[in-house]
Design a protein around this nucleic acid. Structure first.
Lengths: 354, 354
DNA sequence: TTGTATGCGTTATCAT
DNA sequence: ATGATAACGCATACAA
């Protein structure tokens, strides 16, 4: 091992092996081309001797490809995004790619900037979990032949690989469970729809479910904002009144973990008992779900698998695959805890001390 | 705006403006050098006309710098890491840097690989939240003049900028609060120390606190593993027995959010009431803390600020600052909830349904 | 089979 | 003040 102030270049290896740079390059990239075994040995020796690693930057400049994959997420704070990120990172690494991260911080208008920034580093593909506010930049990169995989949120007019929870299945699973458990007045609580496809689909699935069971169950939807808890509280009160009028118990499906927590807060504020006074199933399982109130029943997403599939799609495309855009809808699984059991009696003892 | 299959290069701009590439480059990089106003106008016009953006790859190859910052985290699953990441990303972006992420997935032995991978992309600096198992690669990059900032965990023999919670202050704050609230038999629960500096410091701080109050409070420490809940449960039983022997109430300081949840699980398993039967203060505030049992009291870390400071340190260093390595210790703040109030009576109604 | 020369898009060192 | 040119590290068309 030779220590050098600056990394060894292909020229160093060539000199060391007594061959030309081209030969070294061929040895590295085109093993299949016949090169005399003796030379190959020499080059190989020199490479290991010097611990030579090609410069990805130079390669990128030359090839126009970078061994980089761009990941743009709407909000890195969302545990869902992180979970996906984790699976994606693993696959990328195994395939020899590094991840470049761009976080939108829920500012959808920065999506374009993010994509361009990553593009300028010649990322070979994109994994996107964004709101798709910028069709332009996306279509442009798609046109340039850079593969794109959409996670959880599909974008209008962008016919590319798509990996997501099967929202219909998930909502039906949760709703049917609540129905079976004896709750017949349902409310779906969502973050503001804002054109996000997964939210739209979950709402639609919920409406479909209710329509299919209109003799038994009635349902409504409400959008919940972070700083408008009052709206949510009021919605819950209305819901319960309706339920009591029909002498049944109300229940909620929360569209994601963020909303689940808001619902929990509202229920706590009302002094109701989760499970007994009101049922709750949240989409997204979290590590805290078992310990909030009587335990929150959830629909768990296979987040790790989602991330891995997204990355795998991308890697295949980059490798040249030209199959038609795939739509992978993975099923969620129901995890039953106390919040969807009538009579469990879990009261939320939330005490706030100033 | 001209549409081209490939991005415009500096040569295009030069041609468009009727000047040489060198002039364009000067206009872009060395505004201070005098160039005739008339030429400057022409170049500027051409640049905007063509929407020219320099290629970071080519710049990196030439300059040896990349406008990239490498972020290596021990475990992206840890909300703490994400929170820090978020602040760091913001500052980096504002300073015109992009973040390259490498997640160790708690496999410390991959740290070296991560650093080398990022190095090969000529990242201009590193933000590290790792276990520091690989002094070699680190010292090497430090020697190459690439700045490093350590977050939360300092590494042996690496005298660089360091940003962290003030662990002494945090632990003392929590312990004193528990003491004031009437808990006099304390137990610190930590993830396996494993040479992680922040864990070591918190344990040491705890021991110091107990030593300073040995007339009033007694304390012990236990390491908790994910798959050894029994050990934790037993530790809690022992703790409570000791407390009862002294006719006081026991309390726990949980070293981070992961451990907090394990403690909650153990307390639930034992059927104890948080607050009343056993006190709990957890380091790291989380969005779920208010809703678990009677609410979990926490020591909140200024994670966003930590991330921002780390990035700021790095950006300064990259800009050439040569001040002595800084140690920034930020204070945590106490958030009191039911889990540290005797007599609150919050029982955890955890119900598991197969 | 191997070497030479050129170019990827910049910046920097020379001249002019 | 500006332009020609080499160099960054690599891959490849072409020549040998």
């Amino acid at each position: 091992m030779i220590k050098s102030p600056t990394r060894n270049t292909i020229a160093d290896v060539a000199r060391h092996a007594g061959v030309s740079k081209a030969t070294v390059s061929r040895f590295l990239n085109h093993r299949e081309t016949m090169l005399s075994p003796e030379i190959a040995k020499r080059v190989e020796a020199a490479v290991t001797e010097l611990g030579y690693k090609p410069s990805p930057m130079a390669q990128a400049l030359k090839r126009g490809r970078s061994r980089l994959i761009g990941l743009v997420v709407a909000d890195i704070t969302n545990p869902y995004s992180v979970a996906v990120l984790r699976g994606a990172e693993q696959i990328c690494r195994e395939a020899g790619y590094l991840l470049m991260l761009f976080n939108l911080g829920n500012e959808g208008e920065r999506e374009s900037a993010g994509i361009q920034a990553l593009s300028s580093y010649k990322v070979e593909g994109f994994i996107l979990n964004t709101m798709g506010q910028d069709a332009g930049a996306l279509l442009e990169t798609a046109r340039q032949g850079r593969p794109i995989v959409l996670v959880d949120r599909r974008h209008q007019g962008l016919d590319v690989d798509f990996v997501s929870l099967d929202n219909w299945q998930a909502v039906f699973l949760g709703a049917q469970h609540l129905l079976d458990a004896g709750y017949e007045e349902l409310l779906l609580v969502s973050e503001p729809i804002g054109g996000v496809s997964s939210r739209i689909e979950r709402v639609q699935a919920f409406k479909d479910f209710v329509a299919q069971h209109d003799a038994m169950v009635s349902g409504a939807c409400v959008e919940s904002q972070a700083h408008e808890q009052a709206v949510l509280v009021e919605a819950l009160q209305t819901l319960r009144a309706r339920a009591q009028a029909r002498s049944t118990t109300p229940a909620i499906i929360a569209n994601n973990a963020v909303v689940t927590l808001r619902v929990v807060a509202a229920v706590a504020q009302l002094g109701w008992r989760l499970g007994t006074d009101i049922g709750l199933v949240g989409i997204d399982d979290t590590e805290w779900a078992p310990y909030v109130g009587p335990g929150i029943s959830t629909i768990s997403q296979p987040t790790d698998k989602l991330g891995r599939m997204a990355a795998q799609c991308l890697v295949q495309r980059i490798a040249g695959s030209n199959v038609a855009p795939r739509k992978a809808l993975l099923p969620g699984s129901l995890i039953v805890r106390g919040s969807s059991c009538i009579g469990v009696g879990g009261v939320l003892n939330v005490i706030r001390i100033k």
